[in-house]
């Protein structure tokens, strides 16, 4: 195979004259991926927790709205959702709000659209995990909480959610890993995250192997850290004497 390996390419200044090296580009993409995924994850957790709880409440209106929310965000391809958020929604906003969005820094526009898109897409999935966690509790737990004189919100707060959250740490780990991987889709609207920087490097240096190996290693690195972090969380919240407990 006549391929000229050149790992030194990362140390070369870029051809655009922006006083960065190609490594600098990769680092920028790496940071962008992390900032985007983490901010989207926090929103997804908060929104997903609320929607997931609402799906299990007795009130038909609330659970119906929550179900509709989940189905909408779960059943439209992520890529389409991203285009909607980036190209369509700004046009549908009240005119002054839409214009304000279009006049901000283009990178910020890409970031915001990507963040909202990833956050809401993932929140629908988190909501499903939260719901299944609550539904997998023994039904008597809710009755036991209510029988003690807790109100329904107190029963959720003190009895059901603490156990449900523990049960769903493993599936949540998958969702957390997914959000980093899904963030690569955001390169399609021009956001210079890790995958986009990898492509850009190919265009400028004609060293695709080094470039994509570096991107692969960077994603793996992120996900190994997430996995160990979540494993620690799992151990930390483990209940003595319970399934999988000490």
């Amino acid at each position: 195979m006549a391929y000229n390996w050149n790992w030194g390419v990362f140390l070369q200044p870029t051809a655009t004259g922006d006083e960065s090296t190609y490594f600098g580009w990769m680092l920028y993409g790496f940071k962008m991926t992390i900032a985007l995924s983490l901010s989207a994850w926090l929103i997804a957790l908060a929104v997903g927790a609320v929607v997931g709880v609402l799906r299990t409440v007795p009130n038909k209106w609330l659970s119906g709205i929550a179900t509709a929310y989940v189905e909408v965000f779960r059943n439209i391809p992520l890529l389409v959702q991203l285009f909607l958020w980036y190209f369509v929604i700004p046009e549908l906003l009240p005119e002054n709000l839409g214009n304000a969005f279009k006049q901000t820094n283009p990178i910020l526009q890409q970031f915001l659209a990507s963040m909202v898109c990833l956050a809401l897409f993932t929140s629908a999935r988190v909501a499903e995990q939260v719901r299944s966690g609550i539904n997998s509790l023994p039904p008597g737990q809710k009755n036991a909480g209510l029988a003690m004189g807790f109100t329904l919100p107190q029963t959720y707060r003190h009895v059901m959610l603490p156990m449900a959250v523990r049960l769903i740490v493993p599936p949540l780990t998958s969702e957390f890993l997914n959000i980093f991987k899904n963030s690569a889709v955001c390169s399609t609207i021009g956001l210079l995250e890790l995958a986009a920087q990898g492509r850009q490097l190919v265009d400028y240096t004609a060293q695709p192997y080094e470039s994509f190996i570096a991107v692969t290693v960077a994603y793996l690195l992120i996900n190994v850290v997430v996995m160990f972090g979540m494993r620690w969380v799992e151990g930390y919240v483990r209940v003595p004497g319970y399934i999988g407990g000490k």
Binding site: Q141, A147, R166
Partner: peptide
Amino acid sequence: RSTVGMVFQNFELFPH
């Protein structure tokens, strides 16, 4: 309910 104690078949202690 807070004035009526109840004991269940499956105990239903709060495991956490």
